[in-house]
Design a protein around this nucleic acid. Structure first.
Length: 254
DNA sequence: ATGGCTACGATCCGTAGA
């Protein structure tokens, strides 16, 4: 069972990349972020032709998330219950025996900004939500763009990034609070080479220089961690013309 | 050197991303 997550940065622009990748990688479940597409314009027919049904929570211009699956999803929930938010950042669904929560965590813009405060409040609300989900669903996966590089080894140049948004201590503490609920970072379940990232800046040839951050993650509950057999980040789509800045991240389960 | 891409929705520039 392959579970993937990919921030596509416009589903409309990236649809050819996405359908090509689905055909090659053959994932069973795919969490998508930054659709930048309202629900009425969601490319349902194209994705169904590719073999995937979709649960989506779209928004014009910004944000927007979806869960694609071969088998279809049950008990779809949108947003964070009890957290009023205009921004469409969360969709959850049950696929087979797995509960999947797809998240597009706020960027935060700059430490100390209004958006940074929103990011920290949003993470606190997400933590409350995931605690409840873990009670109800032992086989829980939380996949998406967390917009936090958890440790310095997840950052190409920790010195340059020190104290900046995505790596600041309050953000890392908020990210670790999710693990404290009983979730594990599938990337760290395996021996990993150094300098593995999931996002590279469009500017300054970020990808060619491997100037990246590992901000896209798949977190899983203990029972799912025991079933996790492989992890990979597929850099191939990042090499294409007009790529998303993010690479697809994949975890496999027995 | 505080820039540098990319997408979007609005026009031919501003906002946002990370």
């Amino acid at each position: 069972m392959k579970l993937a997550t990919w921030n596509v940065n416009s589903l409309k622009v990236r649809l050819p990349h996405l359908t090509d990748w689905l055909a090659k990688a053959q994932p069973d479940i795919v969490c998508l972020q930054e659709l930048k597409t309202e629900d009425a314009k969601f490319p349902r027919a194209e994705l169904e032709a590719a073999g995937y049904r979709a649960a989506f929570f779209g928004q014009k211009t910004y944000n927007g998330v979806a869960i694609l699956s071969r088998t279809g999803a049950a008990d779809v929930a949108t947003g964070i219950p009890g957290f009023a938010d205009e921004q469409k950042r969360v969709v959850a669904a049950t696929v087979g025996d797995m509960r999947v929560v797809c998240v597009y965590c706020p960027n935060g813009q700059a430490v100390g900004s209004e958006k940074y405060d929103y990011k920290l409040r949003w993470f606190a609300a997400l933590g409350d939500y995931l605690a409840a989900e873990l009670q109800r669903h032992p086989q829980l996966a939380v996949a998406g763009d967390f917009n936090v590089a958890p440790e310095d080894r997840d950052v190409h140049d920790p010195k340059a990034w020190e104290g900046q948004v995505h790596v600041s201590e309050p953000e890392r503490t908020a990210w670790r609070a999710l693990l404290a609920l009983g979730l594990q970072d599938t990337f760290r379940l395996f021996e990993q080479p150094e300098k593995i990232y999931s996002w590279w800046d469009y500017r300054m040839m970020g990808f060619r220089r491997n100037a990246g951050l590992r901000i896209d993650q798949i977190l899983v509950s203990e029972p799912l961690a025991k079933r996790c057999t492989a992890f990979s980040i597929d850099q191939e789509p990042r090499r294409l013309e007009r790529p998303s800045a993010h690479a697809p991240v994949v975890a496999e389960f027995s």
